[in-house]
């Protein structure tokens, strides 16, 4: 780590001011991704703006939607009675992230802002038709994720909260990378009446994506059997040391089957 400035403002407004005063400042949320990057000297921001004092950690049932603050820790989401009642699949997802230490620190906003292709949350955001509320606008999930580690966020824009649309039914099933336990493939399936959304993480070269064929198969018949005829093409899927594109294609179908079973 190179030495750097550290500030901890009390509001989003102050945080925005603080980041503007820096030339290459970074927001610091749980630090689970950012701090290791700094330790390995892969980044050298001239300042860190810790947003944990900005009161962004509320969790509220707002009727149609469930609104979670960007600074809500994974552990809070996993254990929240409100989340468990409104969207149990989301609590399950949060409970399966990393290990206890990571869950105690990592945040929803940090995960979504980072958009790691193997992260779990982006699939929920996409499948649950979420709206990402930032310091200056609201973005639909379909417009938010723009590629591996890329989002529509502009520089100096803070995610404040995310509203998830409550589904009729939803589930998240993850096949963990044996080493890192991030998603090697994670599938979030959400049913809204007749409409079904299937978001896949861990597998796409462009990051999280929706799988239209499975969505339409499940819309007409919400069962594992209806997936049998769907062909998962391996083009565009990640191929690495742990899993070839073909193997990931297999896991996508298998995890989806398990999600709807």
């Amino acid at each position: 780590m190179y030495s750097t400035k550290y500030v901890k403002p009390n509001s989003t407004t102050e945080a925005l001011e603080a980041i503007k005063s820096l030339s290459e400042g970074k927001f610091l949320a749980g630090g689970m991704t950012l701090i290791p990057t700094l330790k390995q000297r892969l980044a050298s921001p001239d300042g860190l703006v810790d947003i944990s004092g900005c009161k962004l950690d509320s969790i509220a049932d707002e009727g149609e939607t469930l609104k979670i603050g960007a600074m809500a820790r994974h552990i809070s989401v996993a254990e929240s009675a409100v989340v468990k009642m409104a969207i149990p699949a989301l609590a399950k997802l949060a409970d399966g992230i990393g290990d206890r230490q990571v869950r105690n620190r990592g945040t929803l906003g940090g995960s979504v802002a980072n958009n790691d292709p193997s992260a779990c949350y982006p699939s929920a955001v996409l499948a649950l038709k979420a709206t990402v509320h930032t310091s200056n606008r609201s973005l639909a999930a379909d417009d938010f994720f723009t590629g591996m580690f890329e989002t529509a966020l502009e520089e100096d824009e803070i995610i404040e909260s995310i509203s998830f649309l409550k589904p009729t039914k939803a589930n998240y099933v993850k096949f963990p990378n044996p080493a890192s336990r991030y998603a090697m493939v994670g599938v979030f399936v959400a049913q809204f009446g007749d409409e079904v959304r299937v978001a896949v993480t861990g597998a796409g070269e462009g990051g999280v994506f929706r799988h239209q064929e499975m969505e339409s198969a499940l819309s007409s018949n919400f069962s594992a059997d209806s997936l049998s005829s769907v062909n998962i093409v391996s083009d565009g899927l990640i191929s690495d040391l742990h899993a070839s594109a073909e193997y990931r294609a297999n896991l996508i179908k298998e995890m989806t089957k398990r999600a709807v079973a």
Partner: peptide, 11 residues
């Protein structure tokens, strides 16, 4: 060494 951290080397 591709497996030079616990992200890729599985204990």
């Amino acid at each position: 060494l591709l497996t030079a951290s616990y992200m890729d080397y599985c204990m």
